[in-house]
Write a protein that binds this DNA or RNA. Structure first.
Lengths: 353, 353
DNA sequence: TTGTAGGCGTTATCAT
DNA sequence: ATGATAACGCCTACAA
């Protein structure tokens, strides 16, 4: 098959349609071989200064950029890290990922993001997609996924780390925080303030280990303070302001009403606060509300939200460092636990009466 | 050079390390040629049902996924659309992009996102990167970029469309809304409520045509109502809650204070509202505040925010349709203007006194 | 309907 | 220090 690359190639006249220039175009224009051009780009020190300058100026002039796919194919490395997050709509992930990406860049790595919408099957497919696109390593959120997926990653020897969660002795490298502990502590404070009728608004726990851990922390606190698990009303709903409001509506229709509502994240909590206002209930006078994450909104909302601060940016940064290390041949399986902190603001107060 | 692909390849024994399977692996296991496997994947109707089933089951079994780079290289098409947005941290883009991506998926297209942090040089580089990664078309935000960039896209015949802005007679396909008109209208209402001392908090206008248009709409309204441009205090600062608060702080320190503060987007406005509260100023009793975008927060914040509603999701959807059309060979250069609407909430009221 | 083989743009090995 | 050239994994025109 004869292609336009063979024989004399018709160079377009000035300012005409031009397909992306290739290594060969650069090589020809610079009067060297493609190998030399490639070296100028990937190992500049291995080519003498004079040639290099000439080549690079041609590169500049032609606006040459290496074809990514071809490069990946030949080099079997892309310097690209794939990340699969549950959703881009929650600022929490956006922020952590931003830091992750910034730090990756420091190490010459590029980020490729996909979102799974909290759907395990989708995550599995995204893993395949990212690998097909050449991801050298993956960032995954939380531990919750089928053993089959872990086996798959293992068999393919895909380097990966887990973020947004941390448990001692987990088999994987996890850079994150304990989701249970701070909620247990926050729960202690809530009960300490005299609350007895507690409700929880959480994300569905079956596919979300962070949500599960947070709730279990609260229930642990409840037990400690002599409140039975079945006395605690739990509503599961997907993370969104609207859903938080709706759930709060249900809770506030109960008699007797809960005097404290602990939410699985700030987004739900903000919705809950909004609904309380709509219903004419005072916070924390009539009912207390707490969150988790400490997003910007937590300070803005009125009353401001008592919540658990999570060092998202730091986590992203550390995760990136760790991945870079992995790619550089580091063997340790050690994860990292980041500290969370309870932030007391206005939305939590003593139980009414 | 002898590689492991030549001659007999050692298949790993069960459950051992396994590199990603290739077309050839599938072909061998199914007892057909690679061409047939390829066809099963790309043009199923061109292979007889029986063979196809066998092949596909092997594909399943091996967990085969085509190598993206190789495919792009050979097919010279990736079905991937690149999008460059200013930032992922603003929910506004996240939301529009989500819809964009959903609609792309309907057309069998995949989204690749990059963010430019509002930096033109970075945008230019991202364009190159996305093209190097094989993007078949691009989504760009706003009109503001150097002629050189437009020339580059033109020469390479890269299909692209512009979103988040629309102007009649622009040379490019733009799916968006008029940024000036609604601000002019909102300005009319503000002045109509008796405000005379107006201030504006906006994003830097030099690199952001949307910001520029919004401000110019306001100033137009000012002129109409007999207020000179130089009487209007304008603060430029990057979009963030914190910056909105800071700017509001400066404005409220002036004597006499502005009685209305129009913000370039909701994020700034929310910051401004927060600061007013901190300063003990009543909204809209002491000072009115308006925004732009109508993000979720606009309803949540207290007092709720009077703003301009923008149909972000619809815009994303339409942009995706248009791009799919372009790739299918549609020739029209026609853009699309989407309607915005002013949403009156609590933060705008009559001028004090 | 299916197989053969060349080429997509790079990298990397081996000569020179 | 530089140049030839064989892969990399896939698609597709052409042949069978």
């Amino acid at each position: 098959m004869q292609t336009r690359r063979n024989g004399v190639r018709k160079r377009p006249s000035h300012e005409e349609r031009a397909p992306s220039p290739t290594l060969e175009d650069v090589a020809r224009a610079a009067g060297v071989s493609t190998a030399t051009v490639s070296r100028c780009l990937n190992a500049p020190e291995r080519v003498v200064a004079k040639t290099r300058e000439r080549v690079l100026s041609v590169v500049q002039e032609l606006g040459y950029a290496p074809n990514f796919g071809a490069r990946a194919l030949a080099a079997r490395r892309t310097n690209t890290i794939g990340a699969i997050i549950p959703t881009m709509e929650n600022a929490i992930f956006a922020r952590g990922l931003q830091a992750f990406q910034e730090e990756l860049a420091e190490h010459g790595l590029t980020l490729l993001v996909a979102s799974s919408s909290y759907r395990p099957e989708l995550e599995e497919q995204q893993i395949r997609t990212l690998l097909a696109r050449g991801a050298d390593a993956l960032l995954l959120i939380g531990f919750e996924r089928s053993q089959a997926v872990y086996d798959f990653l293992e068999r393919r020897s895909v380097p990966f780390i887990i973020a947004w969660a941390h448990r001692e002795g987990a088999g994987q490298i996890a850079i994150g925080f304990d989701n249970r502990k701070p909620m247990r502590e926050l729960g202690d404070r809530v009960f300490g303030l005299g609350h007895r009728r507690l409700a929880i608004i959480t994300a569905p726990r079956t596919v979300n280990d962070r949500a599960r851990d947070r709730v279990s922390g609260i229930l642990e606190a409840a037990r400690t303070h002599g409140v039975q698990e079945r006395e605690v009303r739990i509503i599961e709903t997907e993370y969104s302001v609207e859903n938080g409001a709706k759930a709060m509506g249900q809770l506030m229709a109960m008699t007797p009403r809960p005097t404290a509502v602990m939410c699985g994240n700030d987004v739900l909590a903000v919705g809950a606060i909004g609904m309380a206002r709509t219903l004419g209930l005072a916070i924390p006078g009539d009912v207390s509300v707490t969150g988790f994450d400490d997003i910007e909104l937590a300070r803005i909302v009125m009353p401001s939200l008592t919540t658990v601060h999570v060092p998202h940016r730091e986590m992203g940064r550390q995760a990136a460092r760790r991945i870079a290390g992995l790619l550089a041949g580091e063997r340790s399986r050690q994860g990292m636990e980041l500290a969370t902190a309870i932030v007391e603001r206005e939305s939590l107060g003593p139980a009414p009466e």
